[in-house]
Every structure is written in C-alpha cells, then in structure tokens.
C-alpha cells in the first residue's frame, strides 16, 4: 500500500472485487445504525467533509450529508450556483480555498467528466476526493448502492463463490436508458449486464464494455433478476434522440404489463428522480417489486462506508483497490 498517495473514490473502474466487497460489507454493518435509537457514531468527529456541488443534485447531496453527519463529521455545503464559482472562480482557486479551510474530504459533483480527477491529482489540496457524478462519466457511490441493493434483495439467486464474501455472481441485470456508469462495477462483482436502449442512445463502442446490448426491452425482461430503469434526461427529448416521449414510453417504458413478464423474484430499480409515466409507470414504481425507496436508504449506508474507509483511519483502508 502506498501511504504517500491520498486515496480517492473517482471511478468504479478503479475498484477491484475485493475493495468493492469491503465497501459493501462495511455498509451492511453500518446499515444497522439507521435502526439504532441514536443514529450517530463518533467516528469522524473533528473531520470536515465538503460537499462541492457545481451542478444541482439534491438527492446525492443530502445523502452524503446524512452519511457524514451520522459519522459526526462537520459538513460544509458549497454550491456552485450563487457562490464565487458563478463569479468566475476557477476550480483551482476553489480547491485552494477548501484546503485552507481544512477540508479532509471533498465530495464533488460537476457536469464535466474528469473534474473530480483533476481535483484529486492536481496537488492543489490535501484531501480525499469522492466523485459524486461527473457528467455522464462516473458516479461510483450510485453504482455501489445499486450493487448493495441487488445483493440485499437477491441473495437467494446469487451463486456462491468459494472465497470471500458474496458478490453478484449469477445475476442478470438489465439497464434501460442512456447513462450507464454502473456496468463496470456490476461486471467486477460477477453479474451479467444487458444494456437496453434505442439505437440513438446506445453508446458506441460497447464492444469494449463488459455487457450485452439489446434494442428490445420485451425480449430481455423475462430473463432478468433485476431491471434498472434510468431517468430519461429532459434535454434528450428535444435533441432528436427519439421522436417523442410517448414513443420512448411505448417501447422502453416499464409498464404494468411489461413488469408482469419478469420472473416472480425480479426487482425494479430506479436511481431517481423518476419521470413517472415516462420510463416507469406509477403503479410499477409503487409495486412490491420496486426497491426504489431501499436504494435511497442504502445510499446513506454505502456513503457512510466510503467515508469511514477513506477517512476513518490513519490511512485509507481501501488501499490498492482504489486509485
């Protein structure tokens, strides 16, 4: 383990199976904190976590905020809008400011792919960087909470591996929509992934991706253990990617009829916020198959685990598993 290098969580491609499972196992223990009468542990007392959000994402921010507070860290929310950033301050000057304030970890959300990487490796500050979404590139804690939710709900359908703790081996997961950052982690943990999207939204060069592609949701659904419905981005609607929201909904929306073709044990996931009636029908989102609320709860546990493993000790416990 290189103790000179600050550990960061920038991309799921940096996580090997061992490191990913360590995060999930830690999150599983921490999930019990939410059942305790006092939902707080003294672990990160005196540490400062900065939520640096250049782009609105209220859900992700409050999830990180809840996670940091349950571990007794001090939380500073720094929003790009209405701050000096909107007055033209550079990422570098923002980083220097945060460093001077003694930030121990910076949770960054940015519309530009690579911004977290730049913040982590430019030598501007001495803090752990956690990527909370950089454009369409990566959103590692979302991928981890999805994996956590799959493991929690489908444990009876995961084939055991002899060594270590349980991954997602033997599961078949369909991802429906246009943003696919969790493919790598699901593959690392042993799940088979099928990406379902209209041809205009299907990423190019999926040959290199560890997944299969399909244009037909109806063909895929009867064979899955889980389906992840991703949010249709509003900006896509007038970008000519598909003719109309109605057509998208007809071909790729998860309706009650479509959900009925899934195996009995299969679960429905959505990272939120949902466009009810567009990519997912309201009755499906509220059905017993839906684990969408669990995903939110698990998000806090997974983020607590990441914060604890990065900040809790004298050096990151994630070690070689994380760049």
């Amino acid at each position: 383990m290189n103790t000179q290098m600050k550990a960061h969580l920038l991309s799921t491609t940096d996580l090997n199976r061992e490191a990913a499972l360590q995060i999930l196992d830690t999150a599983e223990e921490l999930a019990r904190v939410s059942d305790m009468p006092i939902k707080k542990m003294p672990t990160l007392r005196g540490r400062t976590v900065v939520n640096l959000f250049f782009e609105d994402s209220t859900r992700t921010r409050i999830s990180f905020e809840a996670a940091a507070k349950r571990l007794s860290a001090d939380v500073i929310n720094f929003s790009g809008k209405g701050s000096s950033v909107s007055k033209g301050e550079s990422l570098k000057d923002t980083a220097l400011t945060l460093a001077a304030m003694g930030a121990d970890a910076v949770v960054i959300r940015h519309s530009m792919s690579g911004a977290p990487h730049r913040l982590a490796h430019a030598d501007w500050m001495d803090a752990h960087v956690i990527n909370a979404g950089d454009g369409t590139h990566e959103h590692p804690t979302q991928a981890l909470l999805d994996a956590f939710t799959l493991r929690q709900h489908l444990s009876d359908h995961i084939t055991d591996r002899a060594e270590g703790s349980t991954g997602l081996d033997g599961l078949h997961v369909a991802i429906v929509g246009d943003v696919l950052p969790n493919v790598h982690l699901l593959n690392t943990l042993g799940a088979k992934v099928t990406v379902v999207a209209p041809p205009t939204l299907m990423p190019l060069h999926t040959d290199n991706w560890p997944c299969e592609g399909s244009y037909s949701l109806d063909e895929v659904l009867p064979n899955v253990d889980a389906v992840m419905m991703l949010r249709v981005q509003h900006e896509r609607m007038d970008g000519g990617f598909f003719p109309s929201t109605r057509e998208y909904s007809q071909r790729y929306g998860l309706t009650v009829q479509r959900a009925a073709t899934m195996p009995d044990h299969a679960i429905v996931m959505h990272p939120g916020p949902m466009n009810r009636g567009l990519e997912i029908e309201s009755r499906v989102a509220d059905s017993p198959r839906s684990v969408i609320v669990d995903q939110v709860r698990n998000g806090v546990s997974v983020r607590m685990a990441v914060l604890y493993l990065l900040l809790g000790g004298s050096e990151s416990a994630l070690g070689d598993g994380v760049a």
């Binding site: 360590q22 921490l30 604890y308 990151s316 070690g319």
Partner: peptide
C-alpha cells in the same frame, strides 16, 4: 457489540473492517 467505530485509536491505524453488532 462491535466497538470499532467508537475506538479512541482509530486514527492511529488504517480503518478496520467492522464486525457484527
């Protein structure tokens, strides 16, 4: 009862794996 998160020497060693509570 796992006491890892309550230890006073947490920062002297790498973060440890948690046990069951």
């Amino acid at each position: 009862i796992d006491i890892t998160m309550y230890r006073d020497d947490l920062r002297l060693k790498p973060a440890r794996a948690l046990a069951h509570t």
